[in-house]
């Protein structure tokens, strides 16, 4: 797969971690009781972790920032794959309560299948029918999962 150029990925990744760590430390430090070393409050451990994470993030980003030069191009990412896989989970999450397992599984498989542009729609529909029937048999009939199979 494509990786970002080392410099820009270290800058972005390091800064993101520094923000997450700093934010967590700030939130835990201000909202929760720190306590003392001998009797730690709920905020103590998260604050320490947040500070340490922020430090690590800075240590990752700083050398990359100081190296200078162009930040380098952002690598090509398979946007179609990301959108389809994410979309498939989202469709399942939105429809499982409404429609039940079989239609929901059918939709999830079709959306996920679009991730690969070479797959034919007819193949995909057949696959989706097969998998939704299979999952009804395995998870509802055999394992007895508390999900409804159909909307009615």
């Amino acid at each position: 797969m494509n990786l970002l150029p080392e410099r820009s990925r270290d800058i972005l990744g390091g800064l993101a971690l520094a923000v997450i760590g700093g934010g967590a430390a700030l939130r835990a430090g201000t909202h929760l009781n720190l306590g003392s070393l001998g009797n730690m409050g709920p905020g103590f451990f998260p604050t320490i972790l947040g500070v340490a994470l922020a430090l690590c993030g800075a240590l990752i980003a700083a050398p990359a920032l100081m190296r200078g030069g162009k930040p380098g191009a952002i690598a090509r990412v398979n946007l179609r794959a990301i959108l389809c896989v994410i979309g498939s989970v989202a469709v399942f999450a939105l429809t499982i309560r409404l429609l039940g397992l079989v239609p929901s599984a059918f939709l999830a498989v079709v959306v996920a299948g679009f991730a690969d542009p070479k797959t034919k729609l007819s193949t995909l529909v057949l696959l989706a029918i097969g998998l939704s029937v299979l999952s009804w048999l395995v998870f509802i009939v055999a394992l007895g999962m508390p999900l409804s199979a159909l909307p009615f």
Binding site: I96, A105, A108, G113, F139, M145
Partner: peptide, 23 residues
């Protein structure tokens, strides 16, 4: 693989639902 990965995504969804029954 094109036939395999939609199944992985589907089983991921059902698996997550099966633990807490929560969307």
């Amino acid at each position: 693989y094109p036939l395999l990965f939609p199944a992985i995504v589907l089983f991921t969804c059902i698996g997550v639902m099966s633990v807490g029954n929560s969307t």
